[in-house]
Amino acid sequence: MIYSISDLEQFSGVQSHTIRIWEQRYNALKPMRTEGNTRFYDDDQLKRLLNIVSLNQSGLKISKICSLSDEDISRLLQKELQSISETSNFEYYVTQLLKHGLCYDEFSFDNLLNTCISKFGILESYKNIMYPILVRLGLMWRKDDICPAQEHFLSNIIRRKIHAAIDNLPLNENANQTWLLFLPEDEDHEIGLLFANYILKANGKKVIFLGSKVPLDSIKKVVEQNDIDSVLFFMVRSRAKKAAQKYIEDLEKICSSIKIYFAGNAYGPNQLKLGKKINQINSLQEFENKVQNLPVL
């Protein structure tokens, strides 16, 4: 696959200006050029950059790293991975997992992600490793000829890990609250909602998880047939503000006596008019804190 320098910036988290400096001063990468003299890079160059970033995050100087061959870098990465401590920068794991994922190397990706979960637990691994990976891949969706397959590949593995973590939680027969979780019928990116499911169950709540693309009529039926204390849904995709406002108002009518929470990156704080029973969640940490501090009903 072919990447521009801005693509490399989004995958690696390193600014284009810095990448150019590394090329000029240390021969870090060897870009190819179009007839119009525009830089472009292939998979090998992207993997090399991600390896360089990983080693730099672990404390090695750029000048030293760039002087090494790809084989020497791989050996050093393996040695670094074996000795890395729990206090090391999470960016090391993010860049290495991205490298494995972009190559569709499920064995290496799965093993390293399992190592992260074993070291840090599923909650810290999601916040500091899995979520940043998904954000970087999401930024690349604008290049439909490059990233959809890679995003799906990585997302499916991450989704599998969250499902496994949920399955390992004991069911609470005496749960004091019931939450309804869903995505609107035009939304299908459910990993954030899935992890919210984990947080709720880990805190002893009962969850009715409907997943993605759920019509409002179905929400109405579930609410009528069950004793729901709180509703959580995500708005991720962009839509007209007027349409988003109408959706929230329609949902509020259905859930007239139920507390509603919504999250997602489509709308910032104060962009929508919210009723007294609606709370906007702006971060995973904020949601976790709210769940932990909920009163016993």
Rank of each mutant, 00 (worst) to 15 (best):
E288S: 15
E9F: 04
L297W: 12
K30H: 05
L232A: 08
D7R: 08
V214W: 04
I248C: 01
P295D: 13
L68G: 01
N265I: 01
S108H: 08
P31V: 06
S125M: 06
I158K: 07
L55E: 00
T115N: 06
K241Q: 12
S4L: 00
N293L: 08
A164Y: 10
A243C: 09
G36P: 01
F182W: 01
Y247Q: 11
I260G: 07
F234M: 11
K61L: 07
Y26F: 15
S54N: 06
M130E: 05
K119V: 04
K253A: 12
R20L: 04
E35Y: 08
H17N: 06
L8D: 07
Q292G: 03
I166C: 06
L68F: 08
K201V: 08
F107R: 13
F262K: 04
S16V: 00
T95M: 10
Y104M: 13
F287M: 12
D70Q: 07
I21V: 15
L171R: 07
F120E: 05
N56G: 06
I117F: 00
G204R: 04
V296L: 12
C116P: 07
E288Y: 15
I157V: 15
L55T: 00
T18L: 00
T87P: 00
N172G: 05
E252W: 03
G268W: 03
N114K: 08
N270L: 13
N279S: 15
F209R: 09
I162M: 12
I117Q: 02
M140T: 10
L210F: 06
Q24S: 14
S85M: 06
L216G: 09
L123G: 02
D188T: 06
L55C: 00
H163N: 10
A266Q: 04
N56R: 13
N174T: 12
G138V: 02
P215W: 04
L297P: 15
K277N: 15
S74M: 11
Y261G: 01
E173S: 09
V214Q: 11
F11E: 01
P170D: 13
E151H: 01
K290G: 00
W22A: 02
F120K: 11
N176I: 08
Y247F: 14
K242N: 08
K220S: 14
R20E: 02
N203H: 14
L284R: 07
V223T: 12
S6Y: 08
I62S: 04
N176T: 14
E71A: 13
D186Q: 02
E224S: 13
I228V: 13
F107T: 12
L183Y: 00
E80V: 09
I133F: 05
S108A: 14
M32W: 02
F90S: 10
K290Q: 03
D105I: 07
N174A: 10
L274H: 10
L29P: 03
R33T: 06
N289D: 15
E23Q: 10
Q78L: 10
I281E: 13
I146C: 09
K242W: 02
Q292N: 13
I191G: 08
N37C: 01
N27K: 03
K273Y: 09
N111H: 10
I208V: 12
T34D: 05
Q45Y: 05
